[in-house]
Amino acid sequence: MNILEVDRVSKQYSGHKALDNVSLSVPEGSVYGLLGPNGAGKTTLIRIINHITAPDSGSVTFDGHALTEADMPHIGYLPEERGLYKKMTVGEQAVFFARLKGLSRSEATVRLREWFDRFGISDWWGRKVEELSKGMAQKVQFIVTVLHRPKLLIFDEPFSGFDPINANLLRDEILRLRDEGSTIIFSTHNMSSVEEICDHITLINRSRNILSGRVDELRSRWADGHYSITFSDADPVTLMEALAPMAGSFSTSADTRGRHTLDLRLLPGATLRDVIARANEASTIHAVNEAVASMNDIFISAVKANGGDTPAPVIS
């Protein structure tokens, strides 16, 4: 079952279309990656899912019914640009946000104490937010986002501003929330984090959904027919010429021990067996691997194929 269905949603701002007929389905219990270069329309889509702005056309279905304001307490959203009231104390502020999500003051306090203990930040309770570092504030924001145990959690670039240790802590907490039954949407242009934890993705570019699906399916589809051969005792060019009738899209690299790696793609009708046989005649083979496309490769080629400017995905 899908917890969220976005159906042909469009949103127009003066002189520019932020979303153009975007559809996607988020299965319940999944970790869903919402990818795209900056300015593609991700944030607009998230705001529509959060019922902050209304779409010009199209519909959003949440948990089986049309999304309304009453669903706001069932959604948790951690925006990319996030802040806290500087002059309030951490505890007071966390209780304030929890109450806005429908928790009572006492229940919010109990749950918050629990989370603060788990994160080892209990002694921050009475401190003013302006005394916290950016990373500390991020932890508080994370807790505030998930405290009301929403069915759907939306994280926009959640790891920015975290050091690797805290980023790991955060990732574990997110996966734990998934295991407890929440559905997670990740909005990011950080591909490595997608590969690690997302099981579905949608790629948005230039206001359109250009690619959607399960991560493993997408990767194998893109990997289809891609191999790399590591060899020695032959010139890469010679080998390329030898293999030319059955493969294409060559690229080569060399290592320090005189070995070369040739990446290639099988041409229609050719088999891996033929390629290995031919290569074996021409060189000494050390390894043959199926090349796995990284999400980064998929991202770049999909965006390029869509006619977009070459984006610069951040790899951390």
């Binding site: 706001m72 925006p79 802040g83």
Partner: peptide, 17 residues
């Protein structure tokens, strides 16, 4: 101030603007 330090972005997911 709220807009500047981005508290607004957090609050609007709970309360209509």
């Amino acid at each position: 101030e709220e807009k500047n330090n981005r508290v607004l972005e957090v609050i609007v997911s709970s309360v209509k603007p």
